[in-house]
């Protein structure tokens, strides 16, 4: 209620990451997103372990049923993993890189998805409502909350920035491992052909280097900002819709007016929530998929060789390459 009243005048106050009311760490407030992220991570690992047990091949005594998922949740996870691996990642990264990076990319996808979904559930509002029912008066410091869990962690640039930094490190490590330092520098300069070409092309090489060098940082920054902006925008929209009733009451409308506006805004909020579920899924996918694309770009030469090998193998077997 406190949050809702506050959000009516300033929606951003609901969305931004806040410090916990009475928890400080190294003299600074422990942020809600840190707790939410940690708890969500633990729950995610537990849930996925459960899913893994139901997906894993069972004992032979089960017959052919040992190859079938033993729970609906396992089935959902299985479908998602299969789709991401076979339809999305393998066509982009090739079989070798997919096998290598699939665990990391799946972890990234499900971690972001879990944080996005948790952000849609009004844990903070419920906790603050319970506090308000108890009628206790709290002196809350600036940008602090009574809640100990909840909120959209991915609506914090600090969180999405952390994820983007991990992506950045992984992409560059992959680049160094696949291309070597020389190949990595050549990649930044537009490739071997351009670097070893005519000296007349050196200005272009320099220009490409500058663009590519900034691109190194722009790509992960874009990942962070895209996820953050989508989550902030969605939650802002949701808060604005849900606060229409409060605004109407504050404006002194009668019960009928407040009721009508509340019903309409509730329906709108429900529809926006459905959209936000889709956005949560989509943004988790986009973050993971673009990381995969950037990784594969840093190994594009080898990827080409892989295709050449596949083509040669297909010819050797007398079949077309595609």
């Amino acid at each position: 209620m406190i949050s809702l009243l506050a959000s009516a005048s300033d929606p951003m106050s609901h969305i931004v990451d806040k410090g916990l009311h009475e928890f400080d760490f190294l003299g600074r407030p422990m942020m809600l997103s840190m707790v939410t992220m940690t708890v969500t991570a633990i729950v995610l690992v537990v849930l996925l372990r459960w899913a893994a047990r139901s997906i894993a091949t069972g004992p032979e005594s089960m017959g052919n049923k040992r190859f079938v998922s033993q729970s609906a949740f396992g089935g959902v996870i299985e479908v998602m993993v299969l789709y991401l691996r076979d339809q999305m990642l393998e066509p982009v990264m090739g079989a070798r890189l997919t096998r290598k990076y699939l665990p990391f990319l799946l972890s990234m996808f499900f971690f972001i998805l879990a944080l996005n979904i948790v952000g849609l559930i009004p844990f903070v509002e419920v906790q603050e409502f319970i506090y308000s029912l108890r009628g206790e008066a709290f002196e809350i410091k600036e940008n602090r909350t009574l809640a100990i869990f909840g909120g959209a962690a991915t609506a914090s640039i600090s969180v999405t920035g952390g994820m983007a930094l991990i992506s950045f490190v992984l992409i560059q490590v992959q680049g160094f491992r696949e291309l070597g330092v020389k190949g990595w520098l050549e990649h930044l300069c537009g490739g071997h052909d351009l670097v070893s070409g005519s000296p007349l092309l050196y200005p272009i090489v320099l220009l490409v280097f500058v663009v590519e060098f900034f691109g190194l940082f722009v790509k992960p920054a874009a990942l962070a900002i895209r996820l953050f902006a989508n989550m902030v925008a969605g939650h802002t929209l949701l808060i604005v819709f849900t606060s229409f009733g409060v605004l109407a009451a504050n404006a002194g409308l009668g019960w009928f007016g407040v009721g009508a506006i509340t019903v309409v805004s509730a329906i709108g909020a429900m529809l926006i929530t459905l959209l936000e579920v889709f956005v949560a899924l989509l943004q988790a996918f986009v973050f993971m998929f673009l990381t995969a694309v950037f990784i594969s770009l840093m190994a594009h030469e080898d990827h080409g060789n892989e295709e050449a090998h596949a083509e040669a193998a297909a010819h050797a077997h007398g079949a077309p390459a595609h």
Binding site: F25, M31, M34, A153, S156, S158, G162
Partner: peptide, 8 residues
């Protein structure tokens, strides 16, 4: 905020 960044 550096804390959530590192925690992430």
């Amino acid at each position: 905020n550096l804390f959530p960044f590192i925690t992430t």
